[in-house]
């Protein structure tokens, strides 16, 4: 997984390194499989098959906590102000507070990266 923003700032090695480190650390904090599920769910809300640079995630596990996380992530693109305390509490019960923090960052970053892909940020950053 590389993503449109890392591609766009590839010409600036410091930005590219720091952005990639931040992004990879967020993904690692949530876990690779759940990150892949979350990113695909967010991409699908935007009408995309996958987030730019992603491959298809493994099959969704039959796991209530993963379902809760994906449902929470799907609210991020257009309903972030409507998420309730109860929804957040359910996620925290399922994956713990550090997991919830990582999920919030990963889902929000996935949404922002889908949007960056939809304006074709990498192409804008390559213009002559």
């Amino acid at each position: 997984m590389n993503g449109p923003v890392a591609q766009a700032v590839a010409g600036n090695p410091e930005f590219a390194r720091q952005y990639t480190n931040f992004r990879n650390t967020a993904h690692h904090a949530l876990g690779d499989d759940l990150t892949a599920q979350v990113r695909q769910a967010v991409a699908q809300v935007h009408g995309l098959d996958q987030a730019l640079g992603d491959t298809a995630p493994p099959a969704m596990p039959d796991d209530k906590s993963a379902e809760l996380c994906v449902a929470y992530a799907r609210r991020m693109p257009f309903e972030h102000t409507a998420i309730t305390d109860a929804e957040a509490a359910e996620v925290i019960d399922a994956i713990g507070e550090p997991g919830y923090v990582a999920l919030s960052v990963v889902a929000a970053l996935a949404d922002a990266e889908c949007r960056a892909a939809m304006v074709d940020l990498p192409a804008l950053a390559r213009q002559a």
């Binding site: 923003v5 600036n12 922002a112 960056a116 304006v119 940020l121 804008l124």
Partner: peptide, 17 residues
């Protein structure tokens, strides 16, 4: 192009955070 890349990364961070 360099400025757009920098701004695009910044907006991505503003939005996500």
């Amino acid at each position: 192009a360099e400025q757009i890349a920098e701004l695009g990364m910044g907006i991505t961070l503003f939005l996500a955070l």
